[in-house]
Design a protein around this nucleic acid. Sequence first.
DNA 1: TTGTAAAATTAGGCATAACTAATTATATAA
DNA 2: TTATATAATTAGTTATGCCTAATTTTACAA
Lengths: 225, 225
Amino acid sequence: MTNKSQSVSAEDYLKAIYRLSHASGVHAPTKRIAEELAVTAPSVTGMLKKLESRGLVHYSPYTGATLSRKGHARAMKVLRRHRLVELFLQKCLNMSWDEVHDEAEVLEHALSDKLERRIADWLGDPSFDPHGAPIPDESGRIVERQLVALTEIEAGCTAVVAEVRGNDATMLSYFKDHGVLPNRRITLLDRGAYGGSLKLRISRKTRYVGRDAAANVMVEVIDES
Amino acid sequence: MTNKSQSVSAEDYLKAIYRLSHASGVHAPTKRIAEELAVTAPSVTGMLKKLESRGLVHYSPYTGATLSRKGHARAMKVLRRHRLVELFLQKCLNMSWDEVHDEAEVLEHALSDKLERRIADWLGDPSFDPHGAPIPDESGRIVERQLVALTEIEAGCTAVVAEVRGNDATMLSYFKDHGVLPNRRITLLDRGAYGGSLKLRISRKTRYVGRDAAANVMVEVIDES
DNA sequence: TTGTAAAATTAGGCATAACTAATTATATAA
DNA sequence: TTATATAATTAGTTATGCCTAATTTTACAA
């Protein structure tokens, strides 16, 4: 009985606040939360007050919200389920990496603790999902890495793709077709080709990737030459 | 876009009405639906009117409801998902037959068409779930069988367990321990042992099963001797 | 410093799906 | 046939979680 069950909505808010405040360390603003969840700003204000009263967030009017310890734990639990499900759907049921996100978005709210455990066992307690995102462990701890966006590295650098962010199936499908996948080695040949595309070398092939898309590709530089 | 998505509640009502009206062929009464779903009678009246207005049930005040063609199709879809999930959890993730029902009760509402298909493929398009209940096919057709409850057969009869009904985990666990499982052969030795128990022979062992529990065991008689 | 635009909030509603209390219908027994 | 118990309904309330419209706060630029 350790878990009071949260509503689907509340879990989605916690995830959104995590995404928005984690990297920056600052409060997630109402408007950004509204955009993430495709709801209006007043809906967010209302929910933040509710979450505050349940001890899940720290809320300052006109500033935004951050997760409380309890809210963070809850967000990690949902994130863990999401990413375990993504990997499971790919490994067990042969779904492709551009399909798994939407399924996981629903299933993350429907898993019991027991089922979560069985899936983690089946997968061998993995640390990363199909997009290279780290999977929180059972106590909510997550691997922190120093990653840079592909758009931020210098021409001539060679890097390894660590994580591909963003949930747009079309974009993910495009990346898959172009070999932009976690653990692939990439050399950035030219940062400004065609006024807005990056020219890359992946698996002995030359590829062009738009700047907007490339901003979602997080890499670890292995050779500055 | 063929499926307007139904609420979890609506799907649960359709399932309950199916359970209550299918065998008997008559209307499912308000009170029985309320019991099945653990809600009050006024809640049922209200929901039946809503389902009627969406064309999912035929509702006669003071009589009850039956499923419309559309409601029946929807109920079969949910039932198919429920039973596929039960079997999948057992076969793929090693959950025992007394654990799978509660999980499926939630997941049946969270599966996409695509995921349903993948699971069915993984399982090889099965016809029965772990409890021996038939799984509707994609067009909603279901295998109809002539089954009798274990409590209805004569002493001396030998029968094969076809289906174990009821969702109580304790009862299912009990049946598992006593070998009362689909496809097992049973001989009914005595209908009135201990004033209320059935004396059975299963796998060369003698077992006693209470009348209430035995009413959930549906069999096909293979030998009247 | 003040005006304006953006962001956030309050106020007031709506739909869903539950509830209780009160009333009405139906079926059964005297 | 009538009294009564059971079942079902209506009426009115509640909690979620969303919405729009109006107002207030904040931040930035002239």
